[in-house]
Every structure is written in structure tokens, then in C-alpha cells.
Computed example of a mutant assay.
Amino acid sequence: MAAFGTVFMPEMAISWFDNSQWSPAEFVSSDSIQLHPGAHVLHYSSTCFEGLKAFRHEDGSIKIFRMDKNIERFAQSSRLLALPEIDKAATAKMIIDIVKHFASEVPEPPGSMYIRPTHIGTEPAIGKAAAPSVSSCQYVLLSPVGDYFSGGDTTLRLLLEENGARCAAHMGMIKSGGNYASALRPIMNAKASHKADQVLFCPNGDVQETGAANFLLIDGDEVITKALDESFLHGVTRASVLTIARDLGMKVSERQLTVDELLERAAKPGCEAALSGTAAVLTSVGTLLHNDKEYKVGNGGVGATTLKLRQALNAIQWGKAEDKHGWLTSI
């Protein structure tokens, strides 16, 4: 099977901003986008994106999960990067129209159609290192994906990094490519030197997030995760999981979590840790690596509560449980 996110639908929705207004959206070939080599995005990283999914239900209908929440974050990222303001209603229509166009290609559960709206600065002006792009392009790519857990549930090994951050603190809540690029080198080093799967960035002992996912600690009936601020990504899956945890009667604590507390709690029997994100929903963490020592989280295996929370979220996405929070958009 092809790697996650490497297969694309042959067309995408696209719209251009020309200093004053957005062009009507149109469908074009997914491999045809023309940029000037001096485009702002290529030199000054004026780019942001989103990741969300459309699901096929048993009655044949197609539902997009939490589109409104993703578009709000997309608009916020655009503003914080000084990109032209997006038209949220127009972006929603682009997403719905392109998913509807390829509705027959949306896989059955546990597969889905991954949706990637992207916004880039296009002005050809290499002298604007300290000024925003006045023109931009917005497009929506689709990628049919299978079961993220097709190889079976496994647990992750995380290296705790206290001396560095994933990205600049004021950039953390922007979903921008540069943030992911800045985390690549530490992740590669962690894989090579510690056989870690990911780095959990904990600048000055403050547990934040990994290179591409939010972090949750589950201790009995309590879920602990860092309180929202501008230093890390405000994950839509994270928000959804916390809502479901509250629905299940669990205590949700959004607060500072230190490395010392994390290691102390992780050693307790029954403790669990997980990463949340659009692709995997929730993935269990089995081992924490800190100062050349290994610490098992609970028994080191897949957590029962992690599995319960993931199944509860999947049930809503797949139409097998009531959507009482209005998270699904019909196309």
C-alpha cells in the first residue's frame, strides 16, 4: 500500500488573491501550479495549511469532520502570517465542492479522504523579507488514505528534549510548514541515536508537543495536557478527544505539565500517554527517553483508555455514534 498522503486525486480546487479580491474557485490538475521563482513563499515561508478528513457512512453519505474548526484555524494562521485574509465561506465551498466532485473515491471506514487546504504567498518580490505578500494562492488537495493502523497497534518511543523547542514560541499555534521543517533535524537525530519515533519538545522542562502531534497524559480517569497558548498547535483532534473524555465522565486538566511530573506519573501502573492528530487520531506512547534512561509508561503497551477514546471518536466520524456536538458537515 502507498505511504499515507502520497496518492492524490487528479484535480484540486484553487483560487488566487490579486491584491484586492479572490478569484472564483476552479478545478485544475493537481500537478499544475505555476509560481514565479521569486514568489514570497519560496523565500520567506509565507505558507500555512490544514488537515481534515471526509468519511463514508454506511448509508453512502459523505461527512466532513470538524470543517468549521479547521477553517477557523486556517484563517487564524493566515492572519498571523500576514497573508491575505481568506474568505471562510468561500474556503468551505471549495472544500465541499472538491470532496463532492470525488465523492465516489472516498474510501470505506477505516479509510477516509484526507483534505489539505493550503495558502501560500505568491508575490514575486525577493526584497520583501520584512513585508508580507500582497498576492496569494489557496488550493485544496485530496488524498484517499487507508487505515493508519493497518500494521497493527504499536506504541511509540519519545525522546524528551528540554534544550530546544519545536519552533519559535510565538509561531507555535500557526500551522505552517516552517514549524515542521524546524523539528526535522532533532527528530532525525533522535531516531539515529536513541531509536526514538518522535521528539517530545519540553523547553525548560515544560511538556509541550512532538514534531507533528499534541501530547496527552492519561492517569486513571484524568487527562492532562498543556493549556492552550501561542507556543504550540491548537489541535482539532486534541480538542475533540478532550470533549469526548468529558462526555465519558473523565476529568480534563489543561495546565502546565513538567518533565518531572510526567516521569513520576508515567511510572504508575495503569498510566497511559498518547499523541493526538488527524492522521492517527490517538497513538499510544509506550516509552519515554530522558537523559539516556528509558521509562516505561504504565506497562509499556497500548493503553485501554487511549483505545476507548479513539474508538469513541472514530464511531462519530464513521456515523456509528450520535454526532451530538454537530461535528459533521454533509456534502
Rank of each mutant, 00 (worst) to 15 (best):
S23M: 10
T329N: 11
I316V: 15
K63Q: 15
G220C: 04
D229R: 13
L160M: 02
V140R: 08
M67F: 07
F74H: 03
L262H: 08
T278Q: 05
S45M: 09
W22Y: 08
I62G: 04
S253V: 13
G235P: 02
T91A: 15
G326P: 09
P124R: 02
P10F: 12
L228K: 14
T47M: 14
F27Q: 10
T155N: 03
N70F: 07
R56T: 03
T237N: 05
N19G: 15
L313C: 04
I187P: 01
E162A: 06
G178P: 09
K308S: 03
G146K: 08
L83P: 01
E72S: 15
T329K: 05
E254R: 13
Q138P: 05
D147F: 02
A2W: 14
R66Q: 07
I120P: 01
P144N: 09
S29M: 10
E264C: 13
F27R: 06
A273T: 00
D59E: 10
N19P: 07
S276P: 04
L282G: 00
A245E: 00
V281Q: 01
Y139P: 05
I98R: 12
L81D: 04
Y139R: 07
G5A: 13
H101Q: 15
L156P: 10
A168E: 14
D68A: 14
T47N: 10
P144I: 02
S77W: 08
I62E: 00
G38W: 00
I316W: 04
A92I: 05
Q138V: 15
E161A: 13
S15I: 11
N204C: 10
A54K: 02
S78V: 11
N189Q: 14
R79P: 07
A280V: 03
A125L: 01
A25P: 01
T91I: 12
L141S: 06
L248C: 01
I71R: 01
T91G: 14
A212H: 09
E254P: 08
A130I: 15
I14M: 13
L52Q: 05
S104L: 13
S135D: 10
D219K: 10
A131W: 07
Y295F: 11
T154N: 04
D206T: 14
E123V: 04
S32H: 12
V207G: 02
D31W: 10
S240I: 02
A273K: 02
A245Q: 06
S276F: 00
E108A: 15
V140F: 13
A321N: 09
I86R: 01
G121P: 07
L200V: 01
N163H: 07
A280M: 07
A227E: 15
E108G: 12
S133C: 07
S30E: 08
I62P: 02
D31Y: 05
L257I: 10
P110N: 03
I120H: 02
K296N: 13
T258W: 11
L248R: 01
N291V: 10
E11N: 09
T47S: 13
M1G: 13
Q256D: 13
S193M: 08
T225I: 11
Y44M: 11
P186Q: 08
H40M: 03
T305N: 05
I64H: 05
D197H: 09
E50K: 09
S29F: 03
N204W: 00
D292L: 12
V28E: 11
A304K: 12
T155C: 06
L83D: 05
